[in-house]
Each structure stands twice: as structure tokens, then as C-alpha cells.
């Protein structure tokens, strides 16, 4: 459900329930919160969340817990009380010794696990949608990235029949050329997608097409991977520069089609 590993989530919740029932001490709660969140981030998702994000979350959690523990004098005193007792009272000497051994052992194990992780190819950050140049030239036609727009979009209101023709042409172009990578359903999961890095764009994603002006999409279609600026790692992208294969009209038509297929509108000019 929701991409969660239910057994893990339920187990963590159950422990929390037990703590409520037993009216656990603040310190126990703090330790539980940190530990449970750690476990949740690490094992709680079917698709594991990236280490970097988990680290951010845990850092925030840690900060919040420290803030909570010290948010009043009484609570601080209450929180550190067990620690003080553990350290000071002679009868806990054995437990203290145990802790003194256990924590370094844990750290050592952690370091060991880090070192023996299977090797991976180095990954590099990449800009998914890098900024376009101010204008591009496609087949001797200059398109301004800010003011440019799909020349056929207005048919939608003005001449639905002609609009339909452009859509159909776009459909043809898409299923002749694009679906190998971007997929039949435009989920970025075509039959070749698994072999490509970066993965092809997912047009179903609400954060992709609707966030872009159609001029941007035209830029990506016409200039392809080789037309990306450096931060977009043009050397990796398998997106062809379609201006080599397609006419301007075909490119605008397929642009029209991918928006229409997913029920999205391009970001309008000057839209916030």
C-alpha cells in the first residue's frame, strides 16, 4: 500500500503502541523516535529511498529531538536523568561498561558495512531540465524560448477539425519514432528505456510536461541530447536531435500530441 513495506511499518507502530501503553520515559521515546524513523526510511519503503534523502530526514529529526528535550528546564532534567544515573550510580556500572563497549562496536560495524558495500559505478548529478538558450533555430526558423508557442495550439479553439488532424499526425510521429523509449503509455518506460541512462522522460508525470512551456519541449525535441547544455550531460542522452529526421510541423504536432494524450496544458507564456 502506497509503496510502503507494511510489515515493517506496522511493527514500528506496534512498538510505539507498547511505549504508549507502558508510559515510556522521555528518553526512551527520543531513542525510539530516532531509531524507528531510521528503520522506516531504510526498510519502510518498497522502493528504498536514497541515502541522501534519508540523511536529511534523520538530521532534521535529530535536531527536532534535541530541541524537544531542551525545550524546558524540567524536560531537560528529566531527559538526562537516566543518563546521569547510569553514569553516576555504582549499581549500573556493568550496564555502563556494556554501553561503552556496545556503541563503539556499533560504530565499527557501521564502518565495516560501509567499506564492504558492493562497488558501484560513480553516479553524477545531472540537471533533468536544464535552462534552455534564449532562442533556438530549427530549420532556419528562430523560436524564442520565452515567447515562442506551438503554432497549432490555437486550432484547439479555432478549428477543432484541423486540430484533430495535427493531433493525428503527432500520433503517427510518436508511434513511429518515440515510443521505443518514452513508452506506449508515455510513462518513460518504452522497451529500450531499461538500457538507457538517463532514463527517458516520463510524460505522465505532473511535474514534467505541465511545468514546461511548449517552446521548451520543442527545443528538447528539435535539438535532442546533443543540444543539451553541459549540466544536462549531453553525452549520455539518447534523445535524437529530431530536426535531422522530422519536419518542423511534425515536431510541433508530436509536441501537441504528447500534451493532449496526457491531458496536460503547456505552461502558458508568462505564467507564474
Amino acid at each position: 500500500m502506497w509503496g510502503l513495506n507494511l510489515p515493517i511499518v506496522l511493527a514500528l507502530a506496534a512498538i510505539g503502541g507498547v511505549l504508549v501503553w507502558r508510559r515510556a520515559h522521555t528518553l526512551v521515546w527520543l531513542l525510539y523516535s530516532l531509531g524507528a524513523l531510521w528503520a522506516f526510511f531504510k526498510f519502510g519503503f518498497v522502493v528504498p529511498i536514497p541515502q541522501s534523502v534519508a540523511t536529511i530526514y534523520l538530521a532534521i529529526t535529530g535536531l527536532a529531538l534535541v530541541a524537544y528535550a531542551s525545550s524546558s528546564r524540567e524536560r531537560l532534567a528529566e531527559t538526562v536523568q537516566p543518563i546521569k544515573r547510569l553514569i553516576l550510580e555504582p549499581r549500573y556500572r556493568l550496564a555502563l561498561a556494556g554501553l561503552l563497549v556496545a556503541l563503539p562496536a556499533l560504530a565499527a560495524y557501521n564502518a565495516y558495512a560501509d567499506l564492504t558495500m558492493p562497488l558501484e559505478a560513480p553516479g553524477f548529478g545531472r540537471e533533468i531540465h536544464p535552462a534552455p538558450p534564449p532562442e533556438i533555430t530549427v530549420h532556419d526558423e528562430t523560436v524564442n524560448m520565452t515567447t515562442g508557442d506551438n503554432p497549432y495550439l490555437h486550432y484547439k479553439a479555432d478549428d477543432p477539425e484541423l486540430y484533430g488532424k495535427h493531433l493525428e499526425n503527432g500520433r503517427r510521429v510518436y508511434y513511429e519514432n518515440c515510443f521505443w523509449c518514452h513508452g506506449d503509455g508515455m510513462g518513460g518506460d518504452g522497451m529500450f528505456a531499461h538500457g538507457l541512462n538517463p532514463v527517458p522522460s516520463n510524460f505522465n508525470d505532473v511535474g514534467t510536461l505541465p511545468a514546461l512551456q511548449s517552446s521548451f519541449v520543442h527545443w528538447r525535441i528539435a535539438k535532442g541530447g546533443p543540444g543539451l547544455p553541459g549540466p544536462g550531460t549531453p553525452w549520455d542522452s539518447a534523445m535524437p536531435a529530431w530536426e535531422k529526421f522530422l519536419t518542423t510541423e511534425e515536431m510541433w504536432d508530436v509536441n501537441l500530441f504528447i500534451y493532449d494524450f496526457n491531458g496536460f496544458e503547456p505552461r502558458a507564456l508568462g505564467q507564474h
Partner: peptide
């Protein structure tokens, strides 16, 4: 803390190659 975490969630996370493979892209499904 929740809002803080939401705000600090990157759209595209720094991730290793295997994480990208598992997620099917640079963004986590959830």
C-alpha cells in the same frame, strides 16, 4: 519537523546508480 522535512525534500535526489535503478529514475515514486 514534518514541514521542514517536506521542504528539504529534493525533487531529484542525489542517488547512487543502484538507487536510480531501483527508483527507475532520479525521483522516488512516493
Amino acid at each position: 519537523a514534518l514541514c521542514f522535512a517536506v521542504w528539504a525534500t529534493p525533487r531529484y535526489a542525489i542517488s547512487s546508480v543502484s538507487e536510480i535503478a531501483a527508483m527507475g529514475g532520479s525521483s522516488h515514486p512516493q
